[in-house]
Design a binder for these strands. Structure first.
Lengths: 253, 253
DNA sequence: GTGTTTATCGTCAGGCAGACGACTATGATC
DNA sequence: GATCATAGTCGTCTGCCTGACGATAAACAC
């Protein structure tokens, strides 16, 4: 076989699919769109679309993110935390049978966003919504029995599971959990992010000691807020540190 | 734009590239092949090739691995450690300009192998060899000045750097370092793997305590060996544990 | 035997995490 | 305005793990 013969290659379609995660009402939620066309018409799926000619993979993912949510992708190298989302490549899925129509290789991306008021069904999807990841993984996002309970389209359940696992493990050793928070947030709000993503309860006192004691993780802004009720809490911004050493330990049980 | 119109998609070529790592003579080495055709003719590159029709991405990577090294890919789920290599997906590289001829998306894979006697230049490459990763990253693998010192072809230097970083971080919290070892090995041999991959010196006594004290990491076979000289050392096989908790800490300096 | 090499066991101090007590500052309720 | 509920913040104590390092054991070379 010729190693790199550009004139004789099997043609593939390349798409990007997005696992967009946020924390809403103490639950880890993902963005799902309802498919308006076959295959899997009417089923829920991850947002995504074709990579365009002359378009980088990350650019395609950022474009889809804007189209679906209005969120700007947050450049990981940018020093200032705007209102954008964290975006990174997740993995690539290329089973020959994953799309019944043709050979499609999908480069999945993971996006982490602060809580958004409402999903903006922009672009092509008939509708879009946030749904708890457990519900999406178990029966396509429906909790009530009277609605159809079909699994996600294509191999999107696998992609979503991989994205959730990536997020769960990555907030252990990085400051990525702040991507779920608004630009200014309290220690308690950050703790609730960890609790929602991991699905556990954390000791508020030990958590406070840990995050405030890790250099570069949190920067106090000077302000306080009582939006969570109770005693006013200090407001923080995400510090420059991206890697937490030693890491935040996830309880085993 | 139509979200999933299979008849109107820009065609891509999809390839797999391999970062094959091993430890030779106390150094982390990667497999490099010399390109026999333009572009980048005569330059060193990572092994790889087109994904075939009806071929899964992992299958394509495993096929390339066999063609280039004779190594069988080690199924991560297989309980018994044969002489195969660990193989996992690394990342996907799709810059529109990464191949000057056409749009090529490459799904890079990372393979970890025990020390092999000699690279087997099979398949298409004019020649193949192991080279220390530092040399490959700095000047394409040549240490002497009188030979050409061109960087790796395409974006392979970036891919190699990402693969090395993945390996360096992953042996921290997983038992993956045993993939660099033969089926039976000593604690000292495993320690030399860590030292080569990380480029540091580790305390033999603390290392011994750590690896033998982590349940499921190492299983004694009962035999001993003196192949490293000195006092006979116990032989171990890799245990069933894949995740190390608490992790093996990489020295910071 | 003596020296060298490698493996293995022990000891000790410092750091960090989990468990939990105590106190503080707000809003809600009566 | 007193009381309560809520949430935040500071401390203490204990156990585990790690890093530094001493000491011993078992092979080989000469």
């Amino acid at each position: 076989m010729s190693p790199y013969d550009p004139s004789a290659f099997p043609p593939f379609a390349v798409t990007v699919d997005l696992v967009v995660l946020t924390v809403r009402r103490h639950a880890l939620c993902a963005l799902a769109v309802r498919r308006g066309e076959p295959p899997f018409q009417g089923r829920w799926a991850l947002p995504g679309g074709f990579v365009r000619d002359e378009e980088d993979l990350t650019a395609a993912a950022a474009r889809e993110l804007i189209e679906e949510t209005g969120l700007c992708a947050h450049d990981p190298l940018a020093p200032v935390r705007d209102n954008g989302a964290h975006l990174e490549q997740l993995a690539t899925y290329g089973d020959p049978k994953r799309d019944p129509r043709m050979r499609v290789v999908s480069v999945a991306h993971l996006a982490l966003a602060p809580d958004l008021p409402a999903p903006r069904p922009g672009g092509d999807a008939h509708s879009a919504r946030w749904a708890p990841v457990e519900a999406l993984l178990k029966h396509g996002g429906y909790g009530r029995e009277d609605e159809q309970a079909a699994p996600l389209a294509f191999d999107h359940a696998q992609i979503l599971a991989d994205g959730v696992e990536r997020a769960r493990s990555k907030i252990e050793y990085s400051s990525l959990a702040t991507a779920f928070c608004p630009p200014e947030f309290t220690v308690g709000e950050l703790r609730r992010v960890y609790e929602a993503v991991w699905g556990v309860a954390l000791d508020p006192r030990n958590f406070h000691r840990k995050v405030t004691g890790t250099p570069g993780f949190l920067v106090p802004t000077g302000g306080t807020t009582t939006r969570q009720g109770g005693r006013p809490a200090q407001l923080f911004r995400a510090g420059g540190a991206t890697l937490l050493n030693p890491p935040m330990l996830r309880p085993e049980a």
